[in-house]
């Protein structure tokens, strides 16, 4: 997962993305590529995020204002999902009798 893409490679890979649009998304921090001496370096996650931004802005015709609402909410959603997944893992790792107790304890509330 340590592959990095240059700005040109990103424009080529995300076919719908124009260079001015990419620059704008970086300016408003919708994507935050790494900075290197020769320019920006993008990760896989940045590419997937740019695909999503294209879906939202082109297919759903969300303007930048709407993106400023949607993107932070999505980021919060994913943070909450991760926390929940960790919590679930933690619970499943507990001894069964403790899990029972937690289940009964939460049912009482």
């Amino acid at each position: 997962m340590s592959t990095r893409f240059t700005e040109d490679e990103v424009i080529a890979a995300v076919t719908r993305l124009t260079r001015p649009q990419l620059i704008r998304y970086i300016e408003v921090a919708f994507v935050r590529p790494e900075r290197a001496e020769q320019g920006y370096l993008f990760r896989q996650v940045d590419l997937a995020r740019l695909e999503l931004l294209c879906d939202l802005s082109q297919d759903l015709e969300l303007d930048e204002n709407a993106l400023h609402v949607v993107i932070p909410l999505l980021d919060q959603l994913h943070a909450a999902r991760l926390d929940l997944a960790r919590l679930t893992d933690t619970l499943r790792a507990l001894p069964p009798d403790l899990q029972d107790r937690i289940a009964r304890y939460t049912a009482q509330r």
């Binding site: 935050r32 896989q44 996650v45 590419l47 997937a48 995020r49 695909e51 999503l52 999505l74 980021d75 919060q76 994913h78 943070a79 999902r81 991760l82 997944a85």
Partner: peptide, 15 residues
Amino acid sequence: QYYRDFAGASDNAYQ
């Protein structure tokens, strides 16, 4: 690839 495939990674700085 969809963003959600990466979004759950604990090192995802966008969360």
